[in-house]
Simulated assay, not measured.
Amino acid sequence: MVSVHENWDWERLEAVLPREKLELIAAVQPPRSDAGLDRPGWRWEDKRNFWVSSAYGYLFQGLDFGNGDTWKRIWKLAVPQRVRVFIWLTFHNRLLTNVERVRRHVASSGSCEICNNGQEDMDHVLRFFTVAKGVWTRLLPPARWASFFGLPFPEWLRLNLFDKSFYIADDEWGVRVGGDFRDNQGKWLFGFTRFVGHCETLLAELWAIHDGLLHAWELGYRCVEVESDCLDAVKIAMARSKTLDGSALVCSIHRLLSNDWSVVVSHVDRGSNGVADALARRGHGSSMAPVSLFKVPDEVACMVDSEHEVPFDGRGSSLASTALDEREVPFDPGGFS
């Protein structure tokens, strides 16, 4: 089931397995002789060690309590405690927005001081603030925008947290990977997209780094800078973190980095991954196999031109990649450039 290029043979796999199984396989690196032996690990913990807390979180994840008690459902969410507290405050309408500050007589204006676009209430902060809305529109298919932004805030909040069908419905969401590669003047060299099925977001981000490095090496580039806004992925790639230590994918990244070339993996902010995000969205609904793009796609051409106006530092070629997880809307949105 592995091709001569050491990728999964999707034509054979698609002939014998359903789509949902293929999406699980997509996140797994194909077997190879130098990848070492398989070993057991606890999949619900980053370092693959078993903890009772992670088992408890898994057992209660997505559990339908069926009693309509919003408060109990909040405290049973499989998220960190600080996130539960944040949601609890949100349902109580007690986030310290400017509107709430005015109500408490500690501020004179309830308007948003950043975007100057309306009152800074919870709905504005979580849904309509410029940055928040930008995140939502990148995560949601355009067909969902009208209902997502048109619902009353209390109903939107409940559906956002407890009704998965509100987002998924007839649209299969998964993790999609995309990236773009530029020369030292910001000029387009190539791009890539990949659908990695259902897996952890961090794993998808590592797949993006892996695919970008593999493309760059096979195309003959020998002076490359990888820029990522996922600090965890950068630490793993640079062997400064034990998370996922020993996994076949991480080992493959380290093998690529050990080749005879100059590669720097650096952490950057999220402001420079617009083209990579667009390429990841472009990968939705495509085949399981990764796709290389040597011509700039029409939908990102304007973005490439605008970013081209700000050249790179001249060190070498620059690779930007991103992973989008469509299965859920995170509170601290990830993705990386």
Rank of each mutant, 00 (worst) to 15 (best):
A146T: 08
P154H: 05
L151Q: 11
G110N: 09
E113W: 10
Q119Y: 00
I114M: 05
E113F: 09
D123G: 15
L96I: 07
V102T: 10
L139N: 11
S111W: 09
W156D: 01
D170K: 06
F192A: 07
N117Y: 01
F149L: 05
W188T: 04
Y167G: 07
V175K: 00
E100S: 04
R176G: 10
R144Q: 09
A107R: 04
A146W: 06
S165W: 04
G150R: 08
G186M: 05
V135P: 02
G186W: 00
E205T: 13
K164R: 13
I114D: 02
F153N: 01
L202R: 03
E155F: 01
D170F: 03
E155P: 00
L126W: 06
V177T: 13
L140R: 08
S108K: 01
L159E: 12
T201N: 10
D171R: 13
R176I: 13
K187G: 03
L161A: 00
R158M: 01
T97K: 05
S108R: 07
R194N: 12
W136Y: 03
A132C: 05
W207R: 10
L96F: 02
P154Y: 10
F128M: 07
I114A: 03
I114S: 09
G110H: 05
V106W: 12
G191C: 06
K187L: 08
K164W: 10
E205Q: 13
L203F: 01
D170S: 15
T130P: 03
Y167P: 01
R176M: 11
D171H: 11
F162H: 12
F162Y: 07
G191D: 08
F149V: 10
R182P: 02
V99G: 00
R158V: 12
N116S: 15
R144E: 02
R127T: 05
G179E: 11
W207S: 09
V135C: 04
A208F: 07
S109P: 00
C199L: 01
R103I: 03
V175I: 14
I114T: 08
Y167R: 14
L159H: 14
V99I: 02
E113R: 13
S109Y: 03
N184A: 06
V106I: 15
S111Y: 06
F181M: 07
W188N: 00
V131R: 13
V106Y: 08
A204S: 15
V131N: 06
G118F: 13
